[in-house]
Design a protein around this nucleic acid. Structure first.
Lengths: 334, 334
DNA sequence: CAAGTCAGGGTAATCGATTACCCACAGGGA
DNA sequence: TCCCTGTGGGTAATCGATTACCCTGACTTG
């Protein structure tokens, strides 16, 4: 059914070795023969079998990527940046979704290893529970973590400095006169959630702000809504500012505040984290901490290159400083 | 470096055939030996080489998927639904982004073919220009198109009935008293854009509405903004309703209207298409046409199964009826 | 002119897993 | 007892491309 290099070789009247060499350019071939091979390949519509090539070469020219859940727009944004970089160098990306489930994540990772990808880029689902699978995979292929990292794992990482990012948000609302400031984020099951939480605590302490107990559950719109409802339902005075652990939470908060006629920024300041594409389209447009995705993607592939070249190179953790983007949810002007 | 089935066989003191049979269960093996093999595999941390298996079996247990641009949240939503279905049956997904570029799309498709995926699910970038690559790929593997389809291509398709969807939106605004109704969408380079356009024209005609020339460019937030600006800049009376070709355009329109103090729905009604996750979080929450993504994913895999089983089965086009979700952008209540 | 070098061709080993094919042996039936 | 069948084991072919290795002939060089 499928056209193989044998067919091409026969059609061109040369050996398979010559056909292969002509097609891949791995060695010189007399121009005349090369042309015959090229013709044969074209007329037969030859398309090389990447599986066979990968088996022989032991490399696939492909990197695998696993994200916790593709439904959170922050991840497609990273994926997009990585894809673009890979595209430039003619490599492919195999993308997998872990559906926020460490069992699925593990299966995906092992599948990618079995598929002989040249490297793995992963945003781990959990700080504690993703470790095992990564440790196992690491014995076979280079791994670079992005955005989040697993605890106690000696693997490269690139992300933003979450503590600095949250501190920027806190300092910003403090400078606007906020004195009571609540943090709505995810349970510290991921490194991001952990670091943003400690970042928040450090920052409010340093700024001398009053902060009720943080509301922690998960990075979702729905949780943002429930948290906002809870704040409203408490009946006490609303905080001056709600610092959200990421943008989707902030979306939920904004939406629920709007529904209950809590005005942002007049009554409460709200900030997010990530600067996903829709942040500037929220009502009001969301002040948030921007993660420099292109920069992250570039660094990420650089780390991967280094590790592919030398699996024993010292592991690096690169924390890029994020920037605060001020919009109307804290009174900025659009 | 890597543990192979040879190592497992040696360690268990059996032949590779037995090891393979024990591990895959492809034939009976004496329980005692099976246990030895299982032990060996466990202690050596054997992970089968999917590349070698694929080469031998000619199947990969994997489907490939190509989407026009993963940045548009509608596509990750479809991907998510497909992934979930595949996960249920223990298959993998290789996802690629075509970056809205038919050259890249072509490369991705051929890569997937070369990688021997068992089937290909694609949302074609262009109605006219995606055809060639798909035609070529079709000779090697089963293809199912989702959401959009390529012209003159005999391939399965599953999507929503765009004409019906747009008609629902038009009828809805007409029932609310709108008499002047403008369509903001993408140039008819994709089947969706084409069908939504003709759907719009048919519907306004049938409803006897007045409609200025449609504003057509691309499915992006930015175009939504520019289109809204243009409507405002014209200086004439704004239309009663703006029907958008998809949700991201509607987001742009809403955002620009808000910036210019055009009230929605009081001054203008606005509708979208797709019902992406953020549609209900827009300000005001967006009335839109919901695409039943799970249903589409299910149908899509069903079609793929049929085609894998019988490559010569008659091609099917399944148009699912979408439902209108009424929210505040047309005066509905949340 | 002999020896050495090099370019370019072919043959066959190789990557790792699966499986077609063959063989030995046990058990059953005539 | 002899033949037949079924079970479970091993050996080696196989998937398709790449490439190690070998060989031939042309060209250089002393």
């Amino acid at each position: 059914m499928s056209v193989t290099i044998r067919d091409v070789a026969r059609h061109a009247g040369v050996s398979v070795a010559t056909a292969s060499r002509a097609l891949t350019g791995s060695r010189n071939v007399r121009p005349e023969l090369a042309a015959r091979v090229a013709d044969a390949a074209r007329t037969l519509c030859y398309n090389h079998n990447a599986v066979a090539r990968a088996l022989r070469r032991g490399r696939t020219n492909t990197v695998g990527m696993v994200v916790p859940e593709i439904g959170n727009p922050f991840f497609p944004a990273i994926v997009e940046a990585v894809e673009r970089r890979l595209e430039e160098r003619g490599m492919d990306l195999i993308l997998c979704d872990a559906q926020q489930d460490i069992a699925i994540e593990r299966r995906r990772v092992l599948t990618l290893v079995g598929r002989q990808v040249d490297g793995l880029i992963i945003v781990p689902v959990s700080a504690t529970d993703s470790r095992a699978a990564l440790l196992e995979a690491q014995r076979s292929i280079p791994i670079v973590q992005v955005d989040r990292f697993a605890d106690n794992l000696s693997a490269d990482w690139v992300g933003v400095d979450d503590e600095v990012g949250i501190a920027q948000a806190v300092d910003h609302v403090a400078s606007l006169g906020a004195t009571r400031c609540v943090f709505v984020s995810a349970k510290p099951k991921t490194s991001s959630a952990q670091q943003r939480l400690t970042g928040f605590e450090t920052a409010v302490h340093r700024a001398g702000l009053d902060s009720p107990a943080p509301l922690l559950d998960e990075f979702s719109v729905d949780w943002g809504r429930r948290a906002a409802l809870e704040l409203i339902a408490r009946g006490e005075r609303l905080p001056d500012a709600v610092i959200c652990g990421n943008d989707v939470i902030a979306f939920g908060v904004l939406s629920e505040f709007r529904r209950h006629h809590v005005r942002v920024p007049e009554d409460v300041l709200v900030t997010g984290f990530d600067d996903i594409r829709f942040a500037e389209l929220a009502d009001p447009p969301l002040t948030t901490v921007r993660q420099p995705r292109d920069r992250m993607a570039t660094e990420c592939l650089r780390l991967l290159d280094i590790r592919i070249a030398d699996p024993d190179a010292a592991t690096q953790r690169i924390a890029i400083s994020p920037t605060l983007v001020i919009r109307e949810s804290t009174g900025g002007h659009s």
